[in-house]
C-alpha cells in the first residue's frame, strides 16, 4: 500500500509539473505553428509573468487578481514586440532572424527585470484556500498542486475546444497551414498573427504566476524553463497543440521520476529522450518534418 501511495503522489506531482510546463509550451507551439517563429523570449515572458504576479499580490493581496493582471500585462508586451519588431521581419523569410531578435529580447527583458525588481528572489504566498495538504492513500499531497492539475486540464481542454470549435480557432489553424491562401480569401493574417503571439505570451505569464508560489519569482527561472519548453515542443512536434500536451506530460514524468531513481542522470535523460525522438522522427511525435 505504501508503494502505491508513493506512486500516486509522484504521478500527481508529475502532472502538476506538466500543467505549469503546458502553459509555456502551448504558447510556444501555437506561435511556431502560425508564424514559424521559435520565440526565445518565451522563458523571459514566463518570468515577467511571475514578477508582475508578485507585484500584484504585494499591492492588492489577491492571488486571483494576479492571475488576471499578469497575462494582460505580458500579453500587451508581447503584442507590442510583435508589432514593432517581428512584423517587419516576415518579408525577409529568414527563420534565423526571428531566433536572434527574440534572443535579444530575452537578454533585454532579463536585465530589465533585474533593474526593476532587484536581484533577490520574491516569494509569492499561496492563497489561504489552497494552503495545506490533503491525504491520498495516507500520503500527504499539497492542495496547491491539485489546483494546478485542475487548472492545467481546464486550460488544455478550453484551448483545444477553442481551436477546434470556434471560427477564430479555424482561422488560426488555416493560417498555420497556408497563410497566403487565407490572406487571399480576405482575412487579415497580420491581425491573426498578432493575436496569437499576444495569446501565447499571456499563457506563458499565467504559467509564471502559477509557478511563483512553488519556486518564487527569481532571475534564473527563464533559463531553466525555456529549455524545458523547447524540449517539449520538439518532442511533441513543433506547431502541434496535442503534441505540446503529450510533450509536457512526458518531460514532467522524466523529470520527476528521473530525479528520484537516477538523481545524477536526470538532466541527461531528458536530452537523451529528445535526441532519440528527433533521430527517429525528425519532426517530433506529432509534427511534420519542415
Amino acid at each position: 500500500m505504501d508503494f502505491v501511495g508513493f506512486l500516486l503522489t509522484q504521478c500527481l506531482n508529475a502532472f502538476s509539473q506538466a500543467a505549469v510546463l503546458f502553459f509555456i509550451a502551448c504558447g510556444l507551439t501555437l506561435i511556431f505553428g502560425i508564424m514559424r517563429i521559435i520565440n526565445f523570449a518565451h522563458g523571459s515572458l514566463f518570468m515577467l509573468g511571475a514578477y508582475v504576479g508578485y507585484s500584484t499580490v504585494a499591492a492588492t493581496g489577491s492571488f486571483w487578481l494576479a492571475l488576471i493582471v499578469a497575462p494582460i500585462v505580458v500579453g500587451a508586451v508581447g503584442i507590442a514586440f510583435e508589432k514593432v519588431f517581428l512584423s517587419r521581419l516576415y518579408a525577409r523569410g529568414d527563420g534565423g532572424a526571428y531566433l536572434m531578435v527574440t534572443f535579444g529580447l530575452a537578454v533585454i527583458m532579463g536585465e530589465m527585470i533585474r533593474v526593476i525588481w532587484g536581484p533577490h528572489p520574491h516569494g509569492v504566498a499561496t492563497p489561504d484556500i489552497l494552503r495545506g495538504v490533503v491525504f491520498l492513500l495516507d500520503q500527504p499531497f499539497p492542495k496547491y498542486r491539485l489546483f494546478l492539475i485542475a487548472l492545467g486540464v481546464i486550460a488544455a481542454i478550453s484551448v483545444w475546444q477553442f481551436l477546434e470549435r470556434t471560427r477564430a480557432g479555424l482561422l488560426i489553424r488555416a493560417v498555420s497551414q497556408n497563410a497566403e491562401m487565407v490572406q487571399a480569401l480576405g482575412t487579415d493574417v497580420q491581425l491573426v498573427r498578432t493575436c496569437v503571439f499576444g495569446f501565447g505570451c499571456a499563457m506563458a505569464a499565467l504559467g509564471g504566476v502559477l509557478a511563483a508560489p512553488m519556486v518564487t519569482a527569481f532571475l534564473g527561472m527563464s533559463a531553466s524553463v525555456i529549455i524545458d519548453a523547447f524540449v517539449i515542443v520538439i518532442i511533441g512536434g513543433m506547431g502541434s497543440f496535442l503534441g505540446s500536451i503529450i510533450g509536457s506530460v512526458l518531460v514532467a514524468y522524466v523529470q520527476v521520476f528521473g530525479a528520484y531513481y537516477f538523481p545524477n542522470m536526470a538532466l541527461a535523460i531528458m536530452y537523451l529522450l529528445m535526441l532519440v525522438i528527433l533521430v527517429v522522427r525528425p519532426g517530433g511525435l506529432l509534427g511534420k518534418e519542415e
Binding site: I38, I234, L267, A268, L275, P282, E289
Partner: peptide, 21 residues
C-alpha cells in the same frame, strides 16, 4: 539529419547534454 529550427534545437540539445555530462 534535420535543418532549420530543428537543427538549431538539436545542436542546443547536444550542448545541454554536454552540460549535463
Amino acid at each position: 539529419r534535420t535543418h532549420g529550427v530543428s537543427f538549431a534545437m538539436l545542436t542546443l540539445a547536444f550542448a545541454q547534454l554536454g552540460y549535463a555530462m
